[in-house]
Amino acid sequence: YGHSFVHVSRLDYAVKWEGPLYDVKGEPPDETQRVIGRYVGELIEDGATLQLGIGAIPDAALQTLTDRRDLGIHSEMFSDGVIDLVERGVITGARKTRDRGKMVACFLMGSRRLMDFIDDNPMVKMYPVTYTNDPQIVRQFDHFVSVNSALQVDLTGQVCAESIGTLQYSGVGGQMDFMRGAALAPHGRAILALSATARAPKTSAGTPPSKYALTPVDGQISRIVPTLMPGAAVTTTRAHVQYVVTEYGTALLLGLSLAERARSLINIAAPQFREQLERAAYDLHLFS
């Protein structure tokens, strides 16, 4: 439904395929991801319209929303996590400003259960990315909640979600479209959710270490960092970041000074890295 139909006259060649559909079976959230999901869920109110990506953290957040009412979906994509909430009557789209009663996406990725759910389902409408990701469309939803992820967040709030230093890790995706659209919505919330640590790499992948790089602890590195890695892409600028969530809590950066931002982010970093982060904040003249 939506704009997902292509007239046969527009096809040069067609190949009939009767094999199984390609599907992706996600892993269940671990304890860290479930904690992050709970913090994210606390920021989602009845009637909100959601944009969620793929992965364990969005699914963990959805699992906390069973007591909400009339949630909606307007997203670049969605996955299996929404199905249970539709079946429970939680996701209805009844309060959406646009496409009321419909779940809107540009593409889908998930298991065979998801494919069966969307098959000939008039509740699901597929639209081009020029519609789903348009910030001027997104801002029209009164309570729009955007949930995205990041690889690193520095102490001023700059976000890298696409590279590890100079090594390209993923595409830009729709993060900035939805972060901006949510920020412009009357009661919107733009959320970045990530685990506070990651496994320390064995090599630097050709990227020289930053002057302010933190020392790994027990084979882990902090994803809250003094500065982004040299050459890292800034996916979302610090001026557009609102909420940052880790398993250690939620930091609301909107309207804060650089010093207040640094303090808020240190408070949600892994405890074993907070002393290093505080020293770096002084070295960077964020603290006086």
Rank of each mutant, 00 (worst) to 15 (best):
T215R: 13
L151K: 00
G157E: 10
D134S: 14
M109I: 05
S163R: 02
T227G: 00
T92G: 02
R274G: 00
L284H: 00
T132H: 08
C106Y: 01
V8E: 11
G206F: 09
R199K: 13
D120A: 05
E45C: 05
M103I: 12
L286D: 02
S163T: 15
D283T: 07
T237Y: 03
E275T: 14
P122T: 07
P128Y: 10
G157K: 03
P20Q: 10
A269Q: 07
L228H: 01
E278H: 06
Q63S: 15
L286W: 04
F78W: 14
G255V: 13
V217Q: 10
T64R: 13
L253M: 04
L192Y: 11
I36M: 01
F5P: 00
M115D: 02
G249M: 10
R68F: 12
A232H: 01
V104G: 00
H187V: 08
L50N: 05
V225Y: 04
S9M: 14
G72E: 07
V153T: 06
R263F: 02
Q220C: 04
L151R: 05
S146H: 07
D134A: 14
L256M: 14
K16P: 07
L256W: 04
Y212P: 06
S210K: 00
A270K: 03
A48W: 01
S264E: 11
A213M: 05
F78C: 03
N267W: 00
T236L: 15
T215F: 02
G231C: 12
T32R: 10
S146W: 08
T250Q: 06
G249V: 09
F144T: 00
G53K: 04
T215A: 09
W17K: 11
A198Y: 07
L108F: 13
G219P: 09
R274A: 05
Y131H: 08
F144D: 07
R199F: 00
V153A: 03
G55S: 03
N148V: 12
L151N: 02
D80V: 05
T64D: 03
N148R: 12
K202N: 14
E18H: 09
D119I: 07
I91Q: 00
V86N: 05
E31S: 14
M126G: 11
D218Q: 13
D46P: 00
S210I: 07
E45P: 00
K125G: 11
P135M: 02
